[in-house]
Amino acid sequence: MIVVNCPNCGPRNSSDLRPCGELTPRPDPSTASLSEWRTYLYLRENPAGWVTETWYCRNGCRRYFTIQRNTATNEIRDSEAP
């Protein structure tokens, strides 16, 4: 079981939340080229180590927030609101 700390609701089982994947910088849609936009949509670093990722508090406060998680161990540190 992975316990994720929602900044509003406190520690919750990860199955109460929805993982939205690693945080990738969003290009400005009005100036981004098609290939920059698709790179943002699809390509991921997918590292085995610390990654900053977005979660959605699906069954609780319905807020998005980011955490840092080590994908090799599932250790988690500092939750923050976006």
Partner: peptide
Amino acid sequence: GWASLISNMAGVPLPITT
């Protein structure tokens, strides 16, 4: 499952999550 780790070594990011 390890494909991204190897591909990043060649500078070719993949559309993959493990």
